[in-house]
Amino acid sequence: MTAGVDLSPKAQAIGSDEDVVRVRQLVRTVAVAVKLSLVDQTKLVTAASELARNTLIYGGGGSAEVTVVDDGRRRGVRIVFADSGPGIPDLDLALTDGYTTGGGLGLGLSGARRLVDEFDVETAAGNGTRVTVTKWSR
């Protein structure tokens, strides 16, 4: 059924505004390919947009890797955002709605967490940040 659809992992460097747009487009393509519902596609692409912007603004750039995952019952899309920026000193605070150090709305990280099924952040001061999100098909 998925013949002709390329489901191999794909990476997108994040170094500029336009790269954030490219991440959105890449995630959308993969979300459509694994047949996420329209609402789930929209949620995942929106979360990816927030996280890619964080990678650019707070992480000083990095990359997004998009993988198709399969747990035997269903398929999903996993995205890893990685940067080698300053890291997040207080993760709990960073995950609070409305908290921002960058002049935004403070909804990027906390909002993105609500939009996906699995959300994981690995960060250490001075060692960069790695955010992994997964959205499963229903």
């Binding site: 609402v39 596609q41 929209t42 929106t46 927030e50 993105a112 609500r114 939009l115």
Partner: peptide, 14 residues
């Protein structure tokens, strides 16, 4: 605004 966009916006907290 598309329905899926409205649903996502609200969940995002905007």
């Amino acid at each position: 605004m598309r329905p899926a966009v409205a649903i996502t916006l609200v969940e995002l907290g905007l």
